[in-house]
């Protein structure tokens, strides 16, 4: 009986001895879990924004010429004899690499800081094309010379101000609530911009 009690005591001691180890392992698992979540969610948001930008600016990592089976670095339309150039591969690869880098950097931030940065960047990405479109409308309608509004950088000023204000004013709870929501907003927003850029095909 004494031996049994003694054994129970030792088992309990061993269990207590291992408790901090288990807690530490559990914390590490939670930490890596949240890092995985940060990576996966940031990748989706960053990829959608970057792909839209690279497509609109036509910044491929490489250009493929299928008719002559040649690969050129960056944007290389080539001569007409080379046939049609293909940029899509270059946009996708560049977006994937850039989004991976952004997502890895994002894992270094605390969730709170990251969610606020995401609000800033996503609002900036949303406001910039809105102000750009608005500037184009003003330039068309204005009786004075508003050519400066056509610059891609002019609408960036109010967009930057709006994004800074949003990031400053948003509460941590709201930033956390909307964080995963950017995963839907950014790809759909990107598709709206990219779809609009194809309107000529549908209006011909």
């Amino acid at each position: 009986m004494t031996q049994t009690l003694d054994m129970h005591g030792r088992v309990a001691e061993v269990a207590d001895y291992q408790a901090p180890k288990r807690a530490s392992a559990s914390q590490a698992a939670v930490g890596s879990e949240s890092k995985l979540a940060i990576f996966a969610i940031t990748f989706g948001i960053a990829f959608a924004i970057l792909y839209t930008l690279f497509e609109r600016w036509n910044w491929p990592l490489f250009t493929y010429h299928p008719a002559v089976n040649r690969l050129d670095l960056f944007k290389a339309p080539g001569v007409p004899e080379d046939g049609p150039p293909m940029f899509w591969y270059g946009w996708v690869v560049l977006s994937a690499i850039s989004a991976t880098v952004v997502s890895l950097i994002a894992t270094a931030f605390s969730p709170q800081a990251l969610q606020r940065i995401t609000v800033f960047l996503c609002v900036l990405a949303g406001l910039w094309p809105i102000f750009y479109a608005l500037a184009a409308v003003i330039d068309e309608q204005a009786s004075f010379n508003a050519e400066f509004l056509r610059s891609v950088w002019t609408p960036g000023v109010p967009a930057l101000a709006g994004a800074l204000a949003a990031a400053y004013l948003v509460s941590p709870a709201s930033a956390a609530r909307v964080w995963t929501g950017w995963l839907m907003i950014m790809p759909i927003g990107g598709l709206v911009i990219l779809g609009y850029s194809l309107k000529e095909y549908f209006l011909k």
Partner: peptide, 26 residues
């Protein structure tokens, strides 16, 4: 032109789907 435009848009739709794959899996 409609077919060409719709196919161009397909590139973008599929790419956005690729972007969401890690989050979807997670």
């Amino acid at each position: 032109w409609w077919t060409v435009g719709a196919f161009e848009f397909k590139e973008h739709v599929i790419t956005m789907g690729l972007a969401l794959l890690p989050a979807y899996w997670y």
